Amino acid sequence: MDNIKVLVVDDSAFMRKVLSEMLNQHPRIHVVGTARNGEDALKKHITLRPDVITLDVEMPIMDGLQTLKYIMEKDPCPVVMVSSTTKVGAENTLLAIEYGAVDFVTKPSGAISLDMDKVRHLIIEKVLQASKANIRKPTLFKKEIEQEHKNRAMEIKKHSEMKKIIAIGTSTGGPRALKDVITNLPPKLPAPVLVVQHMPPGFTLSLAKRLDSLSEVDVKEAEDGEILKNGTVYIAPGGYHLTVKKIGAVYAVHTHQEEARRGHRPSVDVMFESLAYFPEVETIAVIMTGMGADGTEGLIKLKQSTPNCYAITETEESCTVFGMPRAAIQTKLVDESAHVQLISERILKRF
């Protein structure tokens, strides 16, 4: 296999040194250069032609967001953002993913971290995955498709007799994919939506607020014990599993911190498996872009335990990373695959 050439961009000399040493420890990764700000990064991107760029969010002269927008518009390259865990850092990181960044890594102790060794394996893994990511812009569909979304939404005039719950799992590239899906759901959607997006604590609340500001449905970070409401999207809090429990005749959120599954908490498998206990509910299970296979075991249990599970995966064409959808498709239990821009329409067909 070819070496992966990486350009490390950070305004801190200490961070440039630490990140470079970490990445160079992997036999396939070679840091070909460093840059101290966005302007410096754009010049070195042209001369060094890296396969992946690690990009600090907060920098002087030209910050990470400006730099990323320029790169993705003029000369696309896989980018992994390196962010602080502050509220502003979380919001900027989500914007970066919308602009085209493949993924992000958080600095454990703020802007200049003495604890970066804690995320050594994570940043190496994300750089390796970014080198294989699909960074092409998703195909823009014609106005007829947009009209199809509107027509389908208008058809939802009354609740179906069977209770429905929409459950979505995603990881790398997920915030962008969720934006495509959630913002196309109608305000009177006759079902609640549960979302597991692999993210650390501090980022899922910003994701929920961002999607809520763009969507007709209500979007919030899930809270333990709240009753599921139609037309509301519940995003699993970072660091907590999101499951469903029944209280009398209603269904409620249950969040907990039991053991991580496949290294993930929240886990798509755990969410899907909790829904398998309710055969009277039709679950519309959606697996979108992400590395690994989270969601596959849960989908198998859902399909085995209830006759009322309809499974949709995102197509390879629109995925940033096709790992999670591919693993689900290999079970032969997926009912259909759809481009990310059509997934909301496919969901609404179930009504």
Rank of each mutant, 00 (worst) to 15 (best):
D2E: 15
I4P: 02
V6I: 13
V6W: 11
V6F: 06
D11M: 05
D11N: 02
M15Y: 05
K17S: 14
K17V: 10
S20A: 09
S20D: 00
N24G: 08
I29R: 12
I29G: 03
V31G: 00
V31Q: 09
V32E: 08
R36D: 09
N37F: 07
N37Q: 01
G38A: 00
E39A: 12
D40K: 12
A41G: 02
K43I: 15
P50Y: 07
D51I: 05
I53D: 01
E58Q: 10
M59F: 02
D63C: 01
L65D: 02
L68C: 02
K69F: 06
K69M: 06
I71C: 03
P76E: 08
C77V: 15
C77M: 05
V82R: 01
V82L: 12
S83W: 02
S84H: 00
T85I: 13
T86L: 07
A90N: 02
E91P: 00
E98L: 08
V102Y: 11
D103T: 00
K107Q: 11
K107N: 09
G110L: 04
I112V: 15
S113M: 01
D117L: 11
D117Q: 11
D117F: 10
K118D: 14
V119N: 00
V119H: 02
R120S: 05
L122H: 07
I123R: 07
A130T: 06
S131E: 04
S131W: 08
K132N: 13
I135E: 03
P138V: 00
K143M: 12
Q147S: 01
E148N: 10
E148R: 15
M154R: 15
E155K: 14
M162V: 15
K164I: 14
I166P: 09
I168Y: 03
S171T: 08
T172I: 03
G173N: 06
R176C: 08
L178Q: 05
K179C: 09
I182Q: 11
P187D: 09
P190I: 10
P190R: 10
P192M: 05
V193S: 00
V193G: 00
H198N: 12
P201A: 14
L205A: 14
S206R: 08
A208W: 11
A208S: 15
A208N: 09
L214D: 13
L214A: 07
L214P: 10
K220S: 12
E221A: 11
A222Q: 04
E223K: 15
G225I: 04
L228P: 10
A236F: 05
A236K: 02
G239N: 12
Y240N: 10
T243W: 05
K245M: 15
V253W: 08
E259Y: 03
V268D: 06
D269I: 04
S274D: 01
A276T: 04
Y277W: 06
Y277G: 11
P279C: 03
I284N: 09
T289A: 08
T289I: 04
G292C: 02
A293D: 13
A293W: 09
G298D: 11
G298A: 08
K303M: 07
P307D: 12
N308D: 08
E316D: 13
E317H: 04
T320S: 10
G323N: 07
P325F: 07
R326L: 13
R326Y: 10
Q330Y: 06
Q330T: 03
V334W: 13
Q341M: 15
I343K: 01
R346S: 07
K349H: 13
